[in-house]
Every structure is written in structure tokens, then in C-alpha cells.
């Protein structure tokens, strides 16, 4: 098993480093490009959600990210010390309306659900813990037709 970690204390440089970290891991293990792209999207959604919502109270916070490759799965553990928030409880977006009425709210979590093979959320003490897993052998998608 191979594992790399990063700590994020705010938007900007810290966050921009995460995709580089995942690319490095992908290169070292010659990971499937589709699986890596799916994980990149999922991580961007989750981290930007935490930075937008969790960090909104203007208190100092930190996010710990650990990326690992184990056998045939790529996993991201994302832990933060923000207010309790379960992204899996976000309702799916309405993707029906025409252009002028379309909103992008909820789309990020929708992508996470569709692209990952497994997603789990737990509140551990004062921390949110999200586990994202993408199979390296099959397609993603936790809820059916992805």
C-alpha cells in the first residue's frame, strides 16, 4: 500500500497541491486514467464544498487529506474539523430545466456519488470523515447506472 497526505488550512495554494499529489501517485503506480480523473473531480467537489461551507464561520480550520492505493482501489480520506456536514444528505440536483433556469447547486455531490465506487461519511468526535473509493478495475458509480 502506498499513501500520501496533505493538509489544507484555506483556499489557494494548499488546495491546488492536491491534484498534483494525486497525479504523482497515479504516475508512480501507473493508475488507470479514468479512475484518476474521477477521483480528481470527486476530491475537487468535496474540498471546495468544505472550503465554501465549513470554513464560512471564519474560524481557523484544517482539512487532512490522505490518498492511497491498495490493491485494486484508489482511496481518499478527507477529514475536517468544521461543523458536522454529511454531503451524502444533499438532495440530487434537478437536471431537467432549460438553460435559463439551470442551477449547479448539488451537482458536485451528484458527481461524487456517480463517479465513486464507494462513499461513506462518519462524524468522529468533532471531525467530519469522508471516505471516497474508486475501483481501479471497474467503472465508478455508487448508485447504479454510472
Amino acid at each position: 500500500m502506498s499513501r500520501v497526505t496533505a493538509t489544507i488550512t484555506g483556499p489557494g495554494e494548499d488546495v491546488a497541491r492536491v491534484p498534483e499529489l494525486l497525479d504523482g501517485l497515479a504516475r508512480a503506480h501507473q493508475l488507470d486514467a479514468d479512475a484518476v480523473a474521477d477521483m480528481q473531480v470527486a476530491l475537487d467537489e468535496i474540498l471546495s464544498n468544505i472550503l465554501t461551507n465549513g470554513f464560512a464561520d471564519s474560524r481557523p480550520h484544517r482539512i487532512d487529506v490522505a490518498l492511497s492505493v491498495d490493491g485494486d482501489s484508489l482511496t481518499a480520506e478527507v477529514e475536517d474539523d468544521c461543523a458536522a456536514f454529511d454531503p451524502l444528505a444533499v438532495p440530487p440536483p434537478d437536471i431537467g430545466p432549460a438553460l435559463k433556469d439551470r442551477r449547479v447547486g448539488g451537482l458536485g455531490v451528484h458527481f461524487v456519488r456517480k463517479l465513486m465506487s464507494k462513499v461513506s461519511y462518519t462524524r468522529v468526535g468533532a471531525r467530519n470523515r469522508l471516505l471516497l473509493t474508486r475501483s481501479l478495475t471497474g467503472k465508478g458509480g455508487t448508485d447504479g447506472d454510472a
Binding site: 480523473a37 480528481q40 473531480v41 475537487d44 467537489e45 471546495s48 438553460l99 435559463k100 439551470r102 449547479v104 451537482l107 458536485g108 458527481f111
Partner: peptide
């Protein structure tokens, strides 16, 4: 393009509405 997250779709949607 390697991939696009919802942040990319958001700005694309804004631009498409503007264009219209």
C-alpha cells in the same frame, strides 16, 4: 481537457446564459 468538475460547469453555464 483532462476533466471538469462542477466549478467548470458552473462558469460554462453562466457563459451560455450570457451568450443567449
Amino acid at each position: 481537457l483532462e476533466y471538469m468538475s462542477s466549478a467548470g460547469f458552473r462558469v460554462l453555464l453562466v457563459a451560455a446564459k450570457r451568450a443567449e
